[in-house]
Design a protein around this nucleic acid. Structure first.
Lengths: 220, 220, 220, 220
DNA sequence: GATGAATGAGACTTCATTCAT
DNA sequence: GATGAATGAAGTCTCATTCAT
């Protein structure tokens, strides 16, 4: 039969495809609803309904609500990428402002937003997963700052770990702020961040192009 | 007997006293359990049991769990006092380090800890209460920094609101960190904060005593 | 002391008096509240509060809520007196209208009103008490009507028991109606009742005074 | 097989069927238990247990106990149809006796019995629903009696509204009586009702066939 | 696989009754 | 006796999860 041939063109995929779509729909719905009403106040039934599948179907794809949350967080962790801190020559404040904007743009596309805070406090396994990811990022940022410090581009007497932590804290808070719907002027934040990171003379030099290739130059 | 008379002056409010104690016990238990397992995962029954009273007694003192939380937060809000920023002459980093230590010491005595994050996102009334408090504090800090900026003690080209926000963010995060049990080296944080606030030459002048009475000096 | 003498005039009564007053207050409050919100929806605490005594005091005077209800009903039963059916000469409709009015006036002074219906259905003991009272009244009415029938004043072929029951039913319903606040025109009801009781020629005779002493006369 | 096709025409709505059955079971259980122990003393859990479903299932079909009661009453209201009063020629007492019997037979098949009295007094919405139904019926009866009065078949000087109310009251009481399990001799009641409605000469005429078609005759 | 009705444990809350003061 | 805080059993209702179709 012709019909069968037509169908045959997608031999076994349709099922798997539909499956994947349902899974995705569930994840999307969960993300949306968790953000809107919080994990505890979102019911499995609601998620299923929003994803236009039956309640029972929920449990075909996820062993339980918690597991769905885990999945969500797994997805999100990628988005918790560290801020790109590859300094190029030029005005560091402008550069950073641009980086910040892009960073948050990327993040907010797949953000779990307000979800995590309380949850992490109660679920050891969850907390560990997230923490590991944070550590990893923190490490990357740390490396960078250390390099910069070695090159003499940063305050020499500041503890890099503390600084890293401060940076990340502000980044997280900034993200919260965005989540709350407050518009953010990246330029101003970049200014503050730069003051925290670099001594004023270095900023001046960077701005005037005297420090061209920050990756290699050490000129103090 | 005279003693009896003396005692008689506080005509033994046993009921009221015990009442207050029970109320306190409930509050303490709630604080503990909320922090341990989170608001949603703590039941009224548990709180009552932990406070060694009957379930019904819980409802004598609080209309429900949420109201108890409100009480907790009310208590805590006082502790969300802004950091004391009255700059005296002397090394600003040392000064700030001392202030930070004292600030967090005070706060942590009555801390709600990990409680709030998720909750605030969903409960409009709650959020408002807390937000108002935050606004108030932010206002105080803002005033201070504005004064300092006018006196020419701070970076002249930085947006004070942004700066205030950054400071407060870091303060909050620092508190979180303490809550997580990580020990904090206030000195290092003070250093970072000072870099963010003051240009290096000013710090130098403060340190060397050239700026003696920061409250009165205006050297623009 | 004079004062003691004055007081002494009511040597031990005051306590008992106050006691009685509290008891009465409780009963009154219960009557009021039961009528307003129903037995089940009235709490012991409310009754006590309304009577301006402590909750515990309630249980000094009544072993429990149910017992208070029993007391209420005991009081009320007296008021379930049968309608006075002593026929005098004169217009029977006018006579009956007056009797009806007085009857309901007396009843409504101490009425439990809407209370009983459902309650009686569930509490065997309660039901029995009330039923007994009803029987007793029914008996009285029955006697009267039988006498009237023997005298030939009533429809001769009607079953007196059925008639009695009908009368009482209407009386009860009439009371309900009053309780619901509907104003009642006793004259009209009297007319209907009379038609039910007496053949038209008898009514005519009664009206014209031909039947003078209904207690003794039999003139058919 | 043909049979299978035939069955296929009612494509076996097993879910919906079972659903309906559960709903019915709940309603039946509620009716039974409400009558047995009263509304307030019956718990949702009990109803569910009696209907052999889980507690939660109760709440699938009814938002709460009260709503179930509403349903019950809705069902019952149909049965509160007014007594059929279409008079045909013949002995009016016999006719009425037959009508009464049939009327109560129909009603008692789906009776809520002792349920309503107290409930109606407290639940405004409930009371309204029932009252409306009553009004409607009262209206029908009223119309009939008015017609009869205009035709000169009834006591001319009696207020039809009062009479209607009396009739309905007795009807309701009669129903109560049946509910209490007392057997009822409809003949006797019919006799009383007829005396209340019709003057004796009319009854005589009806009986002797002089008033043949009561729907058309007007002998004023 | 999909469906959604069914389940029942457990959270929340009320209130009759007791009891220490 | 009086008080009213305390008790805890019991009712209401929700929702994560299962399971028959």
């Amino acid at each position: 039969m012709q019909h069968e041939n037509l169908v045959g063109d997608f031999p076994t995929f349709p099922k798997q495809l539909r499956s994947k779509q349902k899974r995705e729909a569930l994840i999307e719905s969960a993300k949306l609803l968790f953000n809107e009403k919080g994990f505890e106040h979102t019911t499995a039934k609601e998620i299923a309904a929003h994803a236009k599948v039956a309640t029972g179907t929920f449990y075909r794809y996820f062993s339980d609500k918690r597991q769905l949350l885990m999945t969500l967080i797994d997805n999100q962790i990628d988005s918790m990428m560290p801020l790109d801190l590859e300094w190029k020559s030029g005005d560091p404040e402008k550069l950073l402002a641009g980086r910040l904007e892009m960073h948050y743009h990327k993040i907010n596309e797949k953000n779990l937003r307000k979800l995590m805070p309380e949850l992490l406090l109660k679920d050891a396994e969850l907390a560990e997963v997230v923490n590991e990811a944070k550590m990893h990022m923190q490490g990357k940022v740390l490396d960078h700052l250390q390099t910069l410090q070695k090159k003499g581009l940063m305050w020499p007497d500041i503890d890099i770990e503390t600084l890293t932590w401060c940076l990340q804290s502000m980044m997280e808070k900034l993200q919260n702020r965005k989540n709350e719907g407050v518009s953010v002027d990246y330029k101003e934040f970049a200014k503050v961040f730069c003051r925290t990171l670099f001594p004023p003379d270095i900023i001046e030099q960077m701005r005037s192009g005297k420090i061209k290739d920050m990756e290699r130059t050490v000129n103090r």
